[in-house]
Amino acid sequence: MKLLSASLLLLCFSCNRGNDLHIKVTDSDDTYEYAARFEPAKSVAVQRFVNRHIAPTRIISDGDMEVTVVLEDKTKFDYEVFPGELNISLDKSQNSPAGYARIKKMCEDLNRIINPKKEE
């Protein structure tokens, strides 16, 4: 009976994993990092949102991707995306204050796409 209960509990956690919601922001003296885990069904909306905010630059991905992005204004950041996951990392020493503020604002606004139910 204990084995069956443990198996059912494990099954529930593994089935629910796709609905995990986790957002972590680290803003240190040297870097700005945004990491989000969300419902994989929101991946397309997240990608569209990012592309609207970095236009005219575009990131095209059909799944897993790790790339360094350089925008027209020379803002440079690392971008990792997997279905249901997004990681953005910006080195402040390689970017202007305006570039840092642009990416930070984009990430803050991303929370509305990833977690629209959260009250600010």
Results as ranks from 00 to 15, higher is better:
residue 40 P to H: 14
residue 102 R to P: 00
residue 95 N to Q: 06
residue 47 Q to Y: 03
residue 50 V to L: 11
residue 59 I to K: 06
residue 34 Y to M: 15
residue 49 F to E: 08
residue 114 I to S: 02
residue 55 A to E: 08
residue 46 V to W: 00
residue 113 I to Y: 05
residue 11 L to F: 09
residue 92 K to R: 13
residue 8 L to G: 07
residue 27 D to L: 12
residue 33 E to K: 15
residue 9 L to V: 06
residue 79 Y to Q: 04
residue 102 R to D: 04
residue 99 G to F: 02
residue 87 N to C: 06
residue 50 V to G: 05
residue 73 D to M: 12
residue 4 L to P: 01
residue 100 Y to R: 02
residue 50 V to N: 04
residue 20 D to W: 03
residue 12 C to Q: 09
residue 9 L to K: 05
residue 90 L to P: 00
residue 72 E to H: 15
residue 27 D to Y: 07
residue 77 F to G: 04
residue 58 R to W: 02
residue 120 E to T: 12
residue 85 E to T: 12
residue 91 D to L: 10
residue 114 I to H: 00
residue 90 L to H: 12
residue 105 K to H: 12
residue 115 N to Q: 13
residue 15 C to P: 04
residue 64 D to Q: 14
residue 47 Q to H: 13
residue 30 D to A: 15
residue 119 E to T: 14
residue 60 I to V: 13
residue 63 G to P: 09
residue 64 D to P: 01
residue 10 L to V: 08
residue 4 L to G: 02
residue 106 M to Y: 11
residue 49 F to P: 06
residue 52 R to Q: 06
residue 44 V to R: 08
residue 77 F to T: 00
residue 71 L to V: 06
residue 88 I to A: 04
residue 70 V to E: 13
residue 103 I to Q: 00
residue 12 C to D: 03
residue 64 D to R: 14
residue 73 D to S: 08
residue 79 Y to I: 00
residue 114 I to T: 13
residue 38 F to S: 05
residue 5 S to E: 08
residue 18 G to M: 07
residue 100 Y to S: 02
residue 120 E to V: 10
residue 17 R to W: 11
residue 48 R to K: 10
residue 34 Y to R: 14
residue 98 A to N: 06
residue 68 T to A: 14
residue 5 S to R: 01
residue 75 T to K: 15
residue 105 K to C: 04
residue 6 A to Q: 09
residue 13 F to N: 03
residue 69 V to W: 14
residue 26 T to Q: 15
residue 33 E to Y: 09
residue 80 E to P: 00
